[in-house]
């Protein structure tokens, strides 16, 4: 069985902070990490390998040469090999061009029984690449998946996944090959083991460029992207804030009255029947 996991290197967002005065970002030392949601895709793949020793897991990324660090982490966690699609031509890709490129790489490396990715990347925050890759590969897609189970059906491998939608969980089934995007419901991702770290240290990811993918240059990177960012603006991140000090008893009581008043103003709570005007504001 062959599993491919898409991995993206992203800036660490937790190390960022907002300057309360200006409302702008304080980028102290933004380091690069593996997209946190990709770790759930990796965990889901590795959990399959725990029970099916014959499974082979390939981690695939598109990015600058430095993105090899993210792939090394995937190998340290237990992936068998790593491939990096890299080259100037790929820079500035939107989700369409990214998915087009990744799908070409998956075709070139495959076939795979399962293609896994994270629900979205924390930098782009679109969640579009998974379903787009599926469309380019002409495969079914299950999004927002938690734990998966595999079963060998009469027609081949069947995946049973728990999907997290807005208002319920869904048990869904789909025959392989397919694409799955994973969310945090997978459970805690494993940490790299020493042996994995050693292997990762020695491993250089296989590099793929435009020529190897057989993609025309006008279909990759910013040239191949049907969307363009035309304007960047700073949102008004700060609001006009009313500040209350609730560290004294009177302060605390006043703060609670103010919260209730706001809730009532916005129509989220109403006075109980019988609670007259006097009941609204307690002395």
């Amino acid at each position: 069985m062959k599993i491919l996991v898409l991995v993206k290197q992203v800036p660490e967002t937790d190390s960022l902070a907002i300057d309360p005065e200006t409302g702008t970002v304080v980028r102290s030392e933004a380091t690069s990490i593996v997209n946190p949601l990709d770790l759930y895709a990796l965990e889901a793949a590795l959990a399959i390998k725990d029970t099916r020793a014959e499974a082979r897991i390939t981690a695939l990324s598109m990015g600058p040469p430095a993105a090899a660090v993210a792939l090394k982490e995937a190998v340290a966690m237990g992936c068998d090999d790593a491939v990096l699609v890299t080259g100037r031509e790929f820079a500035g890709a939107d989700t369409w061009a990214t998915a087009r490129t990744l799908a070409a790489a998956i075709r070139r490396l495959g076939p795979f029984d399962l293609v896994f990715c994270g629900e979205k990347a924390t930098d782009g925050d679109t969640g579009q690449v998974g379903p787009e890759v599926a469309a380019f590969l002409d495969l079914p897609v299950v999004t927002y998946a938690g734990a998966v189970e595999l079963r060998d059906g009469p027609g081949g491998l069947v995946v049973r996944a728990e999907r997290v939608s807005e208002d319920c969980g869904q048990i869904v089934e789909c025959a392989a090959p397919l694409v799955l995007s994973f969310c945090k419901a997978v459970g805690e991702p494993r940490l790299p083991l020493l042996a994995g770290k050693k292997r990762a240290h020695d491993l250089a990811p296989r590099l793929l460029g435009l020529a190897e993918l057989g993609l025309p240059a006008e279909e990759a990177g910013s040239r191949g992207s049907p969307t363009r960012v035309v304007r960047i603006a700073s949102p008004r991140l700060t609001r006009e804030t009313e500040s209350l000090d609730a560290r004294s008893e009177e302060g605390a009581e006043a703060a609670c009255r103010r919260i209730v008043e706001l809730l009532a103003e916005k129509g989220l709570v109403v006075p109980k029947d019988g609670a007259g005007r006097e009941g609204r504001v307690k002395p």
Partner: peptide, 14 residues
């Protein structure tokens, strides 16, 4: 707390 900068009402307390 950075959330205060985004708040309409910021209550400092326990």
């Amino acid at each position: 707390a950075p959330i205060f900068a985004l708040s309409d009402l910021a209550v400092r307390g326990d």
